[in-house]
Amino acid sequence: MDIDRRKFLKIAGLSAVMGIGGKAAFELLAPKELEASLREVPLTQGKKWGMVVNMAKMDDEIMKRCMEACNRVHNIPNFGDPRVEIKWIWEETYEHSFPGQEHEYIGEKYLGRNFLLMCNHCTDPPCCRVCPTGATWKREDGIVMMDWHRCIGCRFCMAGCPYGSRSFNWGDPRKAPKELNPDFPTNRDYPTRSKGVVEKCTFCDERIARGQIPACVEAANEIREGALVFGDLDDPDSDIRKVLRAHYSIRRKPELGTGPNVYYII
């Protein structure tokens, strides 16, 4: 976890008060109190959100849980066709996650091993630079956001992203085959998307807003603490900074200058 014990207890307390839906809090807290208490939650106050994927602690089971958690809370349809797939968080082998980094003597420990990939919430994101409408943009807290009300579906951002992090709704997600999506939409509190817009990982902005950690990190923590570390890269005392200080880490395609904020400890 990226927050010290004392703060964590506070969040735990608050989340309990808020309940999963976050509705109960309004009845219990006066407006001023609620705002004040939310401000105290460090998870709503990041300056530069980032993620560490610690492959030393990661395994296939955890990755599977992470992907399932994300797909569930974000109503991600399964079309059963890699061409039109929607992917917010997904796995890819080492040599395809870091193309050009592999060599012929690399050990089996790495070659063919799956890595967990997602949008890097780049510091200087080309996707935002090329978007003609501002439907994708960099928030002050570092999250590269999507506005599905505004996107015109030109897919310039997909050409611009060098990480394949963006997915286009080639068809209506609600028309995804029923057999593959028996209980779609899985989270009725989160919208589905319309056909013709682009979508991607948003670091669970909707959860961060209420002091909850991203769904994938929560799922990973249930199995093994520290497999995924989420936190504020701007805060030198944050857990994510501690992990990055203690271990050697790499990023995807750093030479392109996009400044990816997802780090991999090998």
Partner: peptide, 18 residues
């Protein structure tokens, strides 16, 4: 375009960086 009815967003929310 995926969402042609919104094409005017290019003018309504102009982004000269694009």
């Amino acid at each position: 375009l995926g969402y042609l009815p919104r094409v005017m967003n290019i003018i309504l929310y102009p982004h000269p960086n694009s």
